[in-house]
Each structure stands twice: as C-alpha cells, then as structure tokens.
C-alpha cells in the first residue's frame, strides 16, 4: 500500500529539540552539529561521588579554574560531529596512503643524504612519543572537561594524535626498510638524547596538571604552537637542502591537520579569555610560563637540526606564537 504523501498533512510539530531551540533563540531547524552537541552532557543530580576523587562529581565545572557562564560557547568552528570527523579524516588519510605508496614504489626516501637520514631519526621519529603525550592530554581534556562541545572535540583530537603518531611510526618503518629498528633507535633518543630532554620533561609535567584547561593551553596552544612550525616548517625547509623533499609529502597530513586544529584551539582560547578578566589573567599567566619553558626546551633540538640557523628559527616561532596569542586576547 503506497501513501500519497501530498494528501497527508505531515507538517512538523517542531523543528528541533527544546534545549537546542532555547540556544538558537527560537524553534528553527538546527544543524547536526548543534543537535549532536548542545546539552548532551548531564549537568545535575549526580548520584555518587567518584571513589577516585570525591572532591568533584564526575562531570564538574570545578575541574578547572577557568569559569564560564555557558560552556557551549566553545563551539567548534569546524562543526565536527562524529560523522563529519571520521569522513574528513578518512579522506585526509587516503591522500597520505597514496603518498606512501607513491614513495615506496620509487624508493624515494633512499635519495635522502645518509647523514640527514640519521637526522630524521633524531628529530622526527621521536615525535611519535610527543604525539602520544598529546594524545594523553587530549584524553584528559575529554575526560575532565565540561560540556560536550569541549569533550567531543577533545576526543577527536586524541584520535588525531594517535593517528599522527602512527604516521610517524610508519615513516620510521619505511625509512628503516620495513622493520621497527629505527623506532627503537628513535625511542632511545626520546629517552636519553640531550636534544629531547627538555621537551620530554615539559610533556611529562603537562601530564600531571590538575587543571584540564591549563593542559589544553599548554599542549594545544603552546607546545603544538611551537613544535609544529619548528618541525614541519623550519626543519622541513632545512631538509630540502639535504634531498629530503620526499619526506615533506609524508608529513602533509600533519601540516594540513595542524592548520585545522589551530582554528579550533584559537576559538576555544579566545572565548575563554573574553569571558572574564580572571580567565584572561589566568590564561596569560599559563601562557607565559609554558612558552618560556618550551622556548628553553626546544633550543637544543633546534640547534641539533639547524645549527647556526637555530636561534633565528626559534625566535621566529616564538614571535609567531606571541602574535597569535595576542590576537586571542592574552597579555604577553
């Protein structure tokens, strides 16, 4: 039996959920991002204090010193919900797969100067551990954060960081001719080489932060904001002079990803800073501390890779980040 829809009055009674309509100001069609994110987290009448930390409810605004009237002001400019997230990443990674296949077929990494190849093992492959640290911070934020807008974007970021750690692992495997030897070598550098200890210490210090917003600022704004341009821009440019053009192609995912990631990070920091003077002061304070730590931590790594040009590169990275932070409303 077919139904002639034209003759049936199928006018909707409402356009969206009531809590979404309240946020939009009226009952009007809402996007999938809005319906999938707004107010999805429970806020009231929790039953039991966590055995693992009774000072807070498991969802609790008090897990950061940053205060917000409305935690859904942290809208993701990318409007990612799970479907758009996985589809976007699957597409990005398809390009990465093609690049790997293309290079492996032609053995392009073999053209890299042997000395620079050593350098890549020294500066790039250990970053898989840095990414793993970032993954842990992203999980912490998804765990301890408040409101679906933050926690959903944070778990997407956690997936991203694991994915990037795995791309870096894959580069190490290809570079090593197909097995894991270079990964072990790179791990040893991460654990022991002087060039890495400042970064590793900063990462480990970030892992014990009690305030998830500080972790967000330290990891996503400061650490990423310095390491990504330094490695994927300055170090990469240096590599071009040593026959490492092929490597740039394998790092394309990280470059594209970071541009996208920064849009979200900037939106979050900007909204938080704008909310109140207290937030602004706190964020500025955290920013200053972490930026100084990272500037110092990155110096030996930069000079290992760029020798005399290191200082200028770091200064550039530092300046760019300060400019970015100032635009977000932080005091430098």
């Amino acid at each position: 039996m077919s139904i002639d829809i034209k003759t049936v009055n199928v006018e909707p009674k409402r356009q969206t959920f009531a809590h979404v309509a309240r946020r939009l100001g009226s009952d009007k069609p809402a996007s999938r991002y809005e319906e999938g994110v707004f107010d999805v987290q429970a806020t009231k009448h929790f039953h039991y204090r966590p055995l693992w930390g009774p000072e807070h409810w498991h969802f609790d605004e008090g897990r950061t010193a940053i205060g917000m009237e409305d935690w859904y002001l942290f809208k993701d400019p990318r409007q990612l919900y799970y479907g758009t997230y996985t589809i976007a990443r699957a597409n990005m990674h398809q390009t990465t797969d093609h690049n790997f296949a293309f290079e492996e077929k032609r053995d392009m990494l073999a053209n890299i100067d042997p000395a620079w190849r050593e350098m890549i093992v020294g500066y790039l492959i250990p970053l898989r551990h840095y990414e793993w640290g970032a993954n842990m911070n992203a999980c912490s934020i998804s765990d301890a954060g408040y409101g679906t807008a933050i926690t959903s974007a944070a778990i997407f970021t956690a997936g991203d960081r694991l994915g990037i750690a795995q791309i870096l692992s894959r580069i190490g495997i290809v570079l090593g001719g197909g097995d894991g030897e270079l990964l072990d070598e790179a791990k040893q550098q991460w654990m022991e080489a002087d060039a890495w200890q400042g970064v590793r210490k900063a990462v480990e210090d970030s892992l014990v932060l009690k305030d998830w917003f500080e972790a967000l600022l330290a990891q996503f704004l400061v650490m990423d904001g310095m390491i990504y341009p330094l490695v994927y821009n300055h170090f990469d440019t240096e590599g071009q002079r040593h026959g490492a053009a092929a490597l740039s192609m394998l790092c394309e995912f990280m470059v594209d990803w970071s541009a996208e990631h920064n849009r979200w990070v900037d939106a979050v920091v900007k909204v938080a800073a704008k909310e109140s003077d207290e937030n602004q002061a706190l964020l500025s304070d955290w920013y200053g501390t972490w930026r100084d730590t990272m500037t110092e931590a990155l110096a030996p790594l930069a000079s290992m890779v760029m020798a005399d040009a290191a200082e200028a590169a770091l200064r550039d990275v530092h300046q760019q980040l300060d400019d970015r932070a100032a635009k977000l409303g932080l005091s430098i």
């Binding site: 909707p12 009674k13 969206t16 319906e35 999805v40 919900y81």
Partner: peptide
C-alpha cells in the same frame, strides 16, 4: 550518542516526548 540523536531528531519533529531529553534524564 550522536547518531541516536540524529536519527531520533526526525521523530522529534512529529511526536511528543522527545524534545526535552537531556533535561528529563537529569530529573
């Protein structure tokens, strides 16, 4: 969570009882 909301979003347009789901869940 999101696919359920997106699926049921259509029912919410035509039937009662869905519109306040997070508010109700807490109370």
């Amino acid at each position: 969570a999101q696919t359920q909301i997106h699926t049921i979003s259509h029912y919410n347009k035509y039937f009662d009882g869905f519109a306040e789901f997070p508010h109700m869940h807490d109370r």
